[in-house]
Design a binder for these strands. Structure first.
Lengths: 134, 134
DNA sequence: ATAAGCCCTATAGTTAACTCTAGGTCAAGA
DNA sequence: TCTTGACCTAGAGTTAACTATAGGGCTTAT
């Protein structure tokens, strides 16, 4: 099955602009073209784009994702680099999860703070203790 | 206890530039000044900045954080808005956690993919099945 | 009293990741 | 044939969030 750029954009919830931008940045060297230059995406290209989106969602900048794509093109000699990169991504995601957990605790604290204030009709209910007055 | 802008920057792992930028964007209307204009931070200002950092870490843009700060200045009439905002943040963080979990699964899959390839010395070990060739 | 070191404002510059416009090609339908 | 609509490139514009510079003011140590 083959897809046009706008079909892929819809599938991945991106715009065609974004996909062309990724291509320009060297993230999609594998996508083939018709003789007149139109991009033709195959199933495996979409899989690769899903990995790219995955890496992006870990906060990895596009230039670093390009390194990975280049390594992929370079073949088996870069297996170690790619393995190390994913291990590093794993660590990064773990840290982000920890960070989010802490954020969640503060947010939940604020939710109950405002619930109490709302029930009382005033924030003054909290003003007796010194912390958390925001 | 009072603090200078650079002391606060160090405490919160930000730069003085960033703090002045926040101030310019209206995030710190509560910070007092000496007669000649120098900012003087008190403990409660630092607490407020921690909340701002917390909101920022949920992905909230500075302009929306400013809305919240404005509501805080407006007093009890905005308690509902502030409560709703934190509930919304809570939902957002929950979604981000879900997203990160999915990301983690893919990353871990890639880790074992590359571990296997590395042990075999070649990525070809995976080439028999059609998916996941990246 | 003068230089160092911190503070200030206003404003310009940077970076990442898009997002859009202009100008053009090509294929299919009325 | 001619128009519509999808595709293309090159390059300009946008936005958020800083980051830095220029020019100036206090305070403190030599």
């Amino acid at each position: 099955m083959k897809y046009s750029i706008s079909e892929v954009a819809k599938k991945l919830d991106l715009t065609a602009y974004t996909l062309r931008y990724y291509d320009k940045e060297g993230l999609m060297p594998f996508v083939e073209r018709t003789p007149n230059g139109t991009r033709v995406f195959k199933e495996s290209d979409i899989d690769a784009l899903k990995i790219i989106e995955c890496l992006k969602s870990t906060g990895m900048p596009i230039k670093e994702i390009k390194n990975f794509i280049d390594w992929c093109s370079d073949g088996d000699s870069t297996l170690q680099e790619r393995y190390d990169m994913f291990l590093e991504r794993k660590t990064s995601v773990e840290e982000q999860m920890e960070e989010l957990k802490k954020t969640m605790e503060l947010i939940e604290h604020k939710c109950s703070y405002y619930k109490t204030a709302l029930d009382a009709g005033t924030e003054d209910i909290h003003k007796t203790n010194k912390i958390g007055n925001f």
